[in-house]
Design a protein around this nucleic acid. Structure first.
Lengths: 246, 246
DNA sequence: CGCAGTTTTGATGGACCTCAAAGACCGTGG
DNA sequence: CCACGGTCTTTGAGGTCCATCAAAACTGCG
């Protein structure tokens, strides 16, 4: 019950003010958004909404990580997206969501009721443009991930996931510490398996193998140190030229 | 060299007038599009553009099928999208494409030069709105496919692909003929394998297995007959309730 | 009919899954 | 401070599904 408190902040002091769908808005648009937005918070592990259920709001992740996943009748599960701060949740023009949304860490959403938001899309072009950009980015990421799921080996899958998380983490901290850099995995082994289309045992085995081969070091279960980022990227199977690319 | 001829048509008689990104346009917007559009045609098997190359136009598929695919250094390939008539190709705001685009069948595109099109997005809201809708649809499809790639068995993958193609085909013809219905696969076994994250041998084996089990009938290599659509869907591993859904 | 490309079928091996149990981590309470 | 329990993670043994390698059969076309 440690639901994070995050309330009554104005958009001007919002940490994702310049990445979210509101980043292009003029002051008058922003004032309006400010007046109708509201926050919701979830503890780590809590569901936000189940597949097939109606979602009467759309939202932007302000703090924390949320996962999108689909589950088959027999329990097989595939994560189909990770929402990080500034990412958008919900689909204008559609009432129900087609996947489960879960708070992976403690999570705060900045919400708008869906119907009014759909009206905004028509009257405020800046929001629609930014939403289109972000949707195109997500589509690119989803397609990138299809290659991982369809064609990469277990070891390459792990390396790919670690390098993606490392890249994001490195953009928040000193890019090149002398002895590499470390970050916390926001995902359990099981969540990693769901993302990668593997079992948690295989994830664990491949993590151990990468550790044995000196590609990563583990400091406790969740903290990962990457002594040589190029070495990690070499394990992803991707073009080395992709080091700073898409 | 049987490049299809498709030229000098006006938008009013366009077969995909009401599905493409122009479907919401007013008459004046349409007149403008009509005056600046141009067609390009490709023979089956021809490349449209390679990953990393600049694409100086955006386009809508008018006739035929195009594939989007990514290739790894060692030749492993994954198809990450299929473009059917009315689907959109290209990314406003980005010069290069990040995947190979290939004509799967003879193909005709309705093109706009990219720079002017980006201007249009700002001045003509109807295009942007429709493009957002179509992009959201593609994102949903990509996510649906991630479940197929990550968690389904070879047999379920084949059934999933066949049911998707059957669904599209059935929307063009009588939905429920008494003895089921038939359609032509636009894809070779190898292309199916690239889409499904399998080898072509496994595709062939599973096609044979589905045939032996009476789920499908093969009339030549490319033509597939589905005597009982529900039986096919039951093989996909999806919820039966999805029969007419997502 | 013969040839090239595509598809099918067969035999074998390996990567990953499944089942099982032991070990590490972490918060709680004695 | 340490013992305790629950959860998460690691490790092991064996089996299965699919990839790989190989060759035959089929299709379409000149």
């Amino acid at each position: 019950m440690n639901a994070p408190v995050f309330n009554n902040r104005d958009c001007g002091s919002c940490p994702i003010r310049h990445q979210a769908i509101c980043s292009r808005c003029e002051q008058d648009e922003l004032d309006y958004l400010d007046s109708v937005k509201y926050y919701r918070s979830y503890d780590a592990g809590q569901p936000v909404v189940w597949a097939g259920d109606p979602l009467d709001f759309v939202a932007t992740v302000v703090v924390g990580v949320a996962s999108l996943s689909q589950t088959m009748e027999d329990g097989r599960r595939q994560m189909i997206g990770l929402l990080l701060p500034s990412d958008f949740l919900g689909r204008p023009g559609r009432e129900a969501v087609s996947y489960d949304v879960t708070a992976v860490t403690d999570l705060t959403l900045c919400c708008f009721r869906r119907k009014p938001f759909e009206g905004l899309l028509k009257t405020s072009p800046h929001i629609g443009q930014r939403l289109l950009e972000k949707t195109l980015d997500e589509l690119d990421a989803a397609r990138e991930w299809m290659l991982v799921l369809g064609r990469k080996t277990a070891r390459e899958k792990i390396a790919s996931l670690l390098s993606i998380i490392a890249r994001r983490a490195s953009s928040l901290m000193a890019l090149k510490a002398p002895d590499g850099f470390a970050f916390d995995l926001p995902l359990t082994r099981e969540a990693m398996a769901d993302y990668l289309g593997l079992t948690l045992e295989t994830v664990s085995r491949q993590m151990s193998a990468l550790k044995k081969d000196g590609v990563i070091q583990l400091e406790g279960n969740r903290r990962v140190r990457v002594p040589d980022f190029a070495k990690l990227v070499a394990e992803t199977g991707d073009d080395a030229g992709d080091l700073f690319g898409g």
